[in-house]
Write a protein that binds this DNA or RNA. Structure first.
Lengths: 337, 337
DNA sequence: GCAAAAATGTAGAACGCTACACGTAGAACA
DNA sequence: TGTTCTACGTGTAGCGTTCTACATTTTTGC
C-alpha cells in the first residue's frame, strides 16, 4: 500500500547541535526551553550553533515528553469574516512566543477536539462552541481550555472570553428606539448554536420591555441554511404587520435581510431599519451601510490566548473576561420620520 | 516559570490495548496501520479492545516513527469566504480516512510552512501561495506538497490544482463585451500576490485584443488595503474617460467597487458594469447581484487533497489538475442600451 | 579559610509508537 | 517425506526530545 517516498534530507537534531557546540544534549534542551541553570556563556554558544545549523526542534518529539508549543483553535465555520478578527488577536498574542496556532473547523466540535487532543495541542480555544457546560468541563479535564462565546459558567473548569451579548442586544434595541423605530423584531437562529443566542434574545426581550414595547416582541428563528433564512425574512417582511426594524443576530443574517428587503423594493431604513452584530468589514460597504454591534474580535482573540497560555503554565482557577460591546451606527438604522 | 498543572487522567496507550487483547504491541500497531499480516480473528480481538478502552493513538508518537495523519492547509487570508469552499472540498476528501486537516493563515507562507514541518504534517496544501517556483520546490523537497493557485510549473516537484485563470479572465471580458460593454478596465492587485494574477491579467489582455478593444486595455492596480482599494476605484470612476465596465480580480474587490460606485451614485450596470471572480456566496445578495467567475473551490480542495494523499503514499511524478471556470451571470453585468 | 549553599552542567531513562528482523506453523509442492 | 512458501505474530531498537537525579564547580557567609 505504502510505496517508498523519495529520500528527504534528514533533519538536524538536538544531538548534532550539542556536539557542534561541545556541550551535552541536556544543555541544549535547557537553552531551548529557557530553563533554569544556564550560564550566559553556554546559552551564547548553543544559540550560535543552533543558528549556524539552522536547527528547529521537532514538535512531535517535544510533545512526547513536554509540550508541543501548539495551540488549537476550533472555529464553528469559516464563512463568517468575524472569525478572521479573532484570529488576528490570537496571532498578536502569540508574537514573540514559541507558540503556534493551528485552526480547525467543525460544526460539531466533538470529533475535532478529539483530533486536536490526539495531536498533542498544549491547549484549545473553542470559538462559539455548540456544547454543554458539562461537555466543556469534560474537555477541560483533559486539556487546558478557553471558550470564546459561552455564557453558562456554573462551576466552569475552563476560562471564558465574551462580549456582553445581553448588553449588546440591549444597545441594538435602544439605538433603534432612539431613532424612532418601534416595532423591532429579532432575527435569530432556529437551532440554538450556542449560549450566545440565548443572551442576545434575553437582552432583546429585556430592552424591549424596558422601552415599553413588550407587546411588539417578536423573535423569528431561521435555520442556518441560506435559502431558509431568505424565506423566513421574506415571510416576515410580507406579513400583515411588518416590523419597522430588524435586529439580526449576526451581520451575515443582516446582509441577507438587506438582500430580501431590496428585492421587495423596501427602502432601508425608511421602510425597514436593520442592525447586525459583529461589525464585520462588509458593514462598511455602501450597498450595506449596516449598523452593527462591535464586539472587537481582536480583543477576544488576544485575551483568550493570553488566558490559555496562563492556564498551560499552571493556573487552575478560572477567569472570565468580558468585553463591552458598542454600537457602530451607519445608514441602515438612521433616524426616520 | 512553569507551575505544576493539575493532574490529568493518563491516556490509554497501545500497550494497554495489547495487554487487554492478549496480543503483542506490534500486533496492535499492525491493526492500527492496516498493515500486512493480520488475521481476521486478531483484528477483531484488537478492535474490540480498542473500542472497549476507547483507545486513540497519539499523533506525536506515531510521527516520531511514521506519519501523523495530519495535513496542513496554508491559507493566505481568512477574510475571503472563497477559502471556505476549498475547505469543504478538503474535508470531503478526508472523510473515511484517518487524516485530519489543520489550517494556518499567513500572508508570507514561509514561517508557517516551517512551523508545519516542525509539527510533522504528513503533507501540505498551499493555497494561493506567494512564493517562487524555486522556493516551492525547496519545500517540496522536504515535505509532500500540493499548491492550489500556482501557475509557474517548470520542473515542479509538487502537484498543482488550478482553475484556468487565463480562460476565466477571457470569459469575463467576453461576457461583458457580449452585453455591450466596451471600455472594460481590470482592477488588479499592486503586489503580485501569486501567479494567479498574472494569468488573469494575461487573459484579460488577450481577450480585449481579440475583441478588438486593445486600445481600451486598462489595468489598474490597488494595494490590498481596504482604504487604498476604495481610493483607486474612486479615482478610476471619476476619471475623464471612465470605463463602462470593471473586471475585478476577486469578488471582494468587486464588492468594494460596487460600494464606491454606489457612493458616487452611479447605477450598476447602466453606468458601470462589474464582474468579480470566485462566485462567493455574497454574490447572490440583491444589494450585490454580482456576476462572477466560478472556479468551484470545492473541487479544487477535493482534488488537491486527493493528490496530496497519493503523494504521501509514494507517488513522485507531478500531476497538474485544471478546473474549467464558468461565468455566473447576474444583474451587475446585464445588457445595456 | 572552610563549610554550606547556590549555580551550572551531564547522564540516561522515559514518552508511545512504528518497523525491521525474526520465529513459528501450516499449506503446497515435488 | 522432506522442502519451500506463505501467512501470521512477536521482540525490540530506536525516533528526538524532556526532565529527574546527580556530579562538579563557584560563590557566599562567617
Amino acid at each position: 500500500m505504502t510505496k517508498k517516498s523519495p529520500a528527504r534530507t534528514p533533519r538536524i537534531t538536538i544531538r548534532e547541535v550539542a556536539s557542534d557546540a561541545g556541550v551535552s544534549v541536556a544543555a541544549v534542551s535547557k537553552v531551548l526551553r529557557d530553563a533554569y541553570g544556564v550560564s550566559d556563556a553556554l546559552r551564547a554558544k548553543v544559540q550560535a550553533s543552533m543558528d549556524k545549523l539552522n536547527y528547529r526542534p521537532l514538535a512531535s518529539a517535544r510533545g512526547l515528553r513536554g509540550r508541543t508549543y501548539t495551540l488549537g483553535l476550533v472555529f464553528p465555520d469559516l464563512r463568517n469574516p468575524f472569525f478572521a478578527d479573532i484570529f488576528v488577536g490570537v496571532n498578536a498574542a502569540l508574537e514573540r512566543t514559541q507558540y503556534q496556532a493551528m485552526q480547525g473547523v467543525s460544526v460539531s466540535a466533538s470529533s475535532l477536539v478529539e483530533a486536536m487532543i490526539d495531536r498533542q495541542m498544549d491547549g484549545l480555544v473553542l470559538i462559539g462552541p455548540n456544547e454543554t457546560n458539562e461537555r466543556l468541563n469534560d474537555i477541560a479535564d483533559r486539556i487546558p481550555l478557553v471558550a470564546i462565546g459561552h455564557h453558562d459558567l456554573k462551576e466552569a473548569r475552563f476560562d471564558t472570553v465574551n462580549n456582553d451579548d445581553q448588553l449588546g442586544a440591549r444597545l441594538a434595541v435602544r439605538h433603534l428606539c432612539q431613532n424612532g423605530h418601534k416595532k423591532v423584531a429579532m432575527l435569530s437562529l432556529a437551532a440554538p448554536v450556542s449560549t450566545v443566542i440565548n443572551q442576545r434574545e434575553l437582552g432583546y426581550r429585556l430592552e424591549m420591555t424596558e422601552q415599553g414595547l413588550g407587546a411588539a416582541i417578536n423573535i423569528v428563528r431561521a435555520p442556518q441554511v441560506l435559502r431558509d433564512v431568505q424565506l423566513t425574512v421574506r415571510r416576515l417582511l410580507e406579513s400583515r404587520d411588518r416590523p419597522d426594524a430588524i435586529f439580526c443576530w449576526t451581520d451575515l443574517m443582516a446582509f441577507e435581510a438587506i438582500s430580501v428587503a431590496t428585492e421587495l423594493e423596501l427602502s432601508i431604513p425608511q421602510d425597514i431599519a436593520i442592525v447586525g452584530y459583529d461589525n464585520t468589514v462588509f458593514c462598511e460597504f455602501a450597498q450595506n451601510r449596516l449598523t452593527s454591534i462591535d464586539q472587537s474580535g481582536e480583543v477576544l482573540g488576544l485575551q483568550a490566548t493570553r488566558l490559555l497560555i496562563e492556564r498551560i503554565d499552571g493556573r487552575s482557577q478560572s477567569e472570565h473576561f468580558v468585553v463591552t460591546p458598542r454600537v457602530v451606527a451607519r445608514a441602515s438604522s438612521a433616524k426616520v420620520g
